[in-house]
């Protein structure tokens, strides 16, 4: 049940101001996105039309604290087909960006941030990796990028690197 006093009507404006979320209010709920979504076909928890409806209604906490916003595979099928140019894939990203700001993040992504923060890459290049590369005749790959740590400090992501991953 939806309780009107628990809704946050400013949520849609907050999303509109977030990169990728600019066009959310264009949505007229046709459902083209959900009809073509390959994730929704497998797992009914993921329903982009419903996420947008919930967001437009102002169900901020229910959306941002949910597990389903993390299930998008960023295939862009919905975005390409949307008749209203809502840019849905980018919009879902805007929503997860807001969720992170509110302290909700999927633990796997915390690990990804840590990996990139410490080595500059999602998959660390170790001595073992470089030895294997050499055996294949491939050049050495650079194992660390202190500039990425600097970037994370500047944008505030280092707080996730320093966290223990639990929210």
């Amino acid at each position: 049940m939806i309780t009107i006093t628990k809704l946050d009507p400013s949520f849609k404006y907050e999303i509109s101001k977030t990169p990728g979320g600019q066009n959310i209010r264009r949505c007229f709920q046709c459902g083209t996105c959900s009809a073509g979504c390959p994730v929704g076909e497998i797992d009914e928890r993921y329903n982009p039309r419903k996420i947008i409806r919930m967001a437009l209604l102002g169900m901020k906490e229910r959306v941002l604290a949910s597990d389903f916003i993390w299930l998008c595979t960023a295939c862009y099928t919905c975005q390409e087909r949307c008749p209203q140019d809502v840019r849905i894939t980018d919009l879902i990203s805007a929503i997860t960006n807001l969720a992170v700001k509110e302290g909700h993040i999927h633990p796997v992504l915390v690990q990804q941030v840590k990996a990139i923060g410490s080595s500059g890459r999602l998959h660390s290049v170790t001595d073992f990796i470089n030895k294997r590369r050499a055996s294949m005749g491939l050049p050495n790959a650079c194992p660390e990028y202190p500039e990425i740590q600097e970037i994370f400090k500047m944008t505030g992501l280092s707080r996730l690197v320093d966290s223990d991953g639990s929210e």
Partner: peptide, 27 residues
Amino acid sequence: VDVDEFACCGFPIESIDHKTTILMAAR
């Protein structure tokens, strides 16, 4: 041409913080 300075493009950070992604890409 191999370029040692190239790090992660920024894509894995997209769902976390778009501005960091753009900054990593711009770098």
